[in-house]
Design a protein around this nucleic acid. Structure first.
Length: 106
RNA sequence: CGAGUUGAUUAUACGGUCGCGCGGAGCGUAAGCUUCGUGAGGAAAGUCCGAGCACCGCAGAGCAGGACGCCGGAUAACGUCCGGUAAAGGCGACUUUAAGGAAAGUGCAACAGAAACAGACCGCAGAGAAAUCUGCAAGGAUGGAAAGGGGAGGCAAGAGCUCACCGGCGUUGCGGUAACGCGACGCGCUGUGUAAACCCCGUCCGGUGCAAGAUUGGGUAAACGCCAAAUGGGCUGCUCGUCCGGCGUUUACCGUGAACAUCGCUAGAGCAUGCCGGUGACGGCAUGACCAGAUAGAUGACCGUACACGACAGAACUCGGCUUACAGAUCAAUCUCGAAAU
RNA sequence: GGGGAUGUAGCUCACCCGGUAGAGCGAUACGUUCGCAACGUAUAGGUAGUCAGUUCGAGUCUGAUCAUCUCCA
């Protein structure tokens, strides 16, 4: 299981030193860590609170599904790109392709 | 049956698998694991009002400033709610209204129009040969607003000049707690709008807001510098009044994880049910349950069944309102209007 | 979460007390020049963010709503 990234310090560390990886639907930042941790970053540009919460939930669910295939443990931040529609399948594919490209999958 | 009016309720439901926040219990040195319970709204939204609570402080007085404004009640309080009154709209059920004062004073009323703290352009009548003079304010024309209204009498033509009705003002009787209503008598009648213009009258208001604020380790001593000495700073914009020196740097000793921690943080002017009082807002009594508490911020994914195929929308200290957004569904009323039948 | 402010021409802004919406830059046309710039002359461009209310009349007053900016750890 993963833990949530809560501290501002951790976010700053990832934003400044984390490796960036782009995919169609989102941006992924990661660093090796002791435990797998997930942070989600959804700005106000994505809409009102209901819409933003929906995006966060979809991102968490997508990440949860991809986790078993991870090699090692990492601290990860997911940043969605602006779009008209957000789907679970789209996020899953994006995460999978990004992780594969970085060679983090088994 | 059709068209409405008013009030209220609800906001996909049920089952299964995996997953998340919080709390309890158990296991474990610990990381954590297992299990049980619980987990968004009618508007949680906008932040437009009113409070609780907290601090600044002592708000003591006056001025300034702000809010409200028919009457009576409800409430912790309110700009909210309830019941009335008046006016406007609707055939009606009913709805809407920032609804005090224009005879305290000041201002404004562009353009048009003859004239907008007051009048004669056209006109009507009399006199005169005419120019013009005198009387008048019915009709025309301008305007949002034009000298109480339209009718009869009267007159040279006209005019509250006179009369009845309506309106207005004053006095007064009755009903009502009151706003106000109904009536009687008198006065021919004294210019309009604007107070969401200044203002007047009445009522109320200290400021800042949980990023408030509190706790946990900062304390003691010395030196120097800056500002200031009846000046400066704090207390609300100002005045009176009142309180006090303030800030920074360095060194020595003890201490040191001063925050992204912990508390505030959810048991409450609360909720549900029943009874009683009241037209109602609401109040009283009894019983029952404990019902989110996060801090990059918890409700999702998949499958099955049903249909109307699911709108607006996500707690962030807590309540009472208001306002705004919203697919629909349901219920109620001796409700209203129309049609048909009896 | 809680305070504060601003929406006017393509852009940057005026218009305090209600009465015909203006300025600068820009755009278009003409002149000037061999041509361009500069300069001169003229023209177009707005229902004052949106919706209601008060008023005879609203950019201005009042209320609601939408958008943008900003401050508080």
């Amino acid at each position: 299981m993963y833990t949530r990234i809560k501290k501002n310090n951790d976010f700053q560390k990832l934003f400044s030193r984390g490796k960036k990886c782009f995919s169609p639907a989102l941006i992924l930042l990661y660093l090796p860590a002791k435990k797998t941790a997930l942070g989600v970053c959804v700005s106000k540009k994505h809409g009102k609170s209901v819409r933003r919460n929906r995006i966060k939930r979809l991102l968490r669910e997508a990440f949860r599904k991809q986790m078993p295939y991870l090699k090692g443990s990492y601290a990860v931040i997911l940043i969605p790109k602006q779009a008209q529609e957000y789907t679970l399948q789209g996020f899953e594919k994006s995460i999978a392709s990004a992780l594969k490209r970085e060679g983090l999958l088994q």
